[in-house]
């Protein structure tokens, strides 16, 4: 199971990691399930036929039947709390522990691959999956929306209307925003993955971290720590749907996720470089 990873450069190591990740059936199963979210959502709205009164159901759901471009936004809101963190948790939790459990980690490190470089590449792999997941969801959303519903200029949260190309740009930015939101969790998953040789344990623990963060975020008694929670800005992508566009929360979110990457990335580094690889 060396999978041709005798390359030294991290570029080729990354390409090899990507090809392993995206050749796995599990990855494709998760991406297909993600694409089912907007599809089910759109079909349900199309079949129900009756227009939903505004303010009922998840945000934007009432607008889906008027404008298919909203399918992606609504699906994103539904996928952020559980489904996206779940899939990212699976990929990030598997990074090191997965190799350890199948016994390939040893061989990887016998080849002249620096442990830090391996960690970095594993993190990039998890990040690549986050990009694939958010864009799969958004692009499927657009396609199914265009098929089932009329499509036209999009009404922003501020009540102003933007043209379709403008709306697509914002959809693109929302997907980027959500990808950034998942990077901190990827770093946490990577760290947890260095702690164990049982991948399922690391995956579950990563998902638990994301859930705990969201639960803490709903407790008003803990208001003072809310801005430091991993999930604090997760729903802040709504700021990209205002007029004028508010990039403030995008920047704050990036800074927060970067802090998590710095802390858990270095924890993972310290743990991984100082541990004995037995399997």
């Amino acid at each position: 199971m060396l999978r041709g990873r005798s390359f030294v450069g991290s570029g080729s190591l990354f390409i090899s990691e990507l090809s392993v990740l995206f050749r796995r059936r599990r990855t494709w199963a998760m991406l297909s399930t993600i694409s089912l979210i907007p599809i089910f959502l759109a079909i349900a709205v199309a079949l129900s036929g009756s227009a939903l009164p505004p303010g009922e159901g998840p945000p934007f759901l009432d607008r889906v039947s008027q404008n298919g471009l909203f399918v992606g936004f609504t699906a994103m809101i539904m996928a952020i709390p559980l489904f996206l963190p779940l899939t990212v948790g699976v990929v990030a939790g598997d990074t090191i522990a997965g190799e350890a459990s199948t016994g390939t980690l040893r061989y990887l490190l016998i080849a002249p691959v620096n442990r830090a470089k391996l960690l970095f590449v594993k993190f990039l792999g998890a990040a690549a999956f986050s990009i694939a997941a958010t864009f799969t969801l958004m692009i499927t959303g657009i396609i199914i929306g265009v098929i089932l519903f009329p499509v036209g200029p999009v009404t922003l949260l501020s009540g102003d209307v933007v043209s379709i190309p403008q709306a697509l740009l914002r959809i693109f930015l929302v997907a980027i925003y959500v990808t950034i939101s998942l990077l901190g969790l990827s770093a946490i998953g990577l760290f947890i993955s260095t702690l164990t040789v049982i991948p399922v344990g690391a995956m579950a623990a990563t998902v638990v971290v994301s859930t705990v963060s969201q639960i803490l975020g709903t407790l008003p008694q803990l208001e003072s720590i809310h801005p430091y929670l991993l999930s604090y800005y997760w729903l802040g992508f709504a700021d990209l749907l205002r007029n004028p566009m508010d990039l403030g929360s995008m920047a704050s979110n990036a800074l927060l996720q970067l802090s998590y990457i710095a802390i858990f990335g270095s924890l993972a580094y310290s743990r991984f470089t100082s541990k004995d690889i037995l399997s």
Binding site: S266, L267, Y269, S270, R271, S274
Partner: peptide
């Protein structure tokens, strides 16, 4: 090796 983990926070 644990220095980065202590320094980052």
């Amino acid at each position: 090796r644990w220095t980065p983990a202590m320094l980052a926070p």
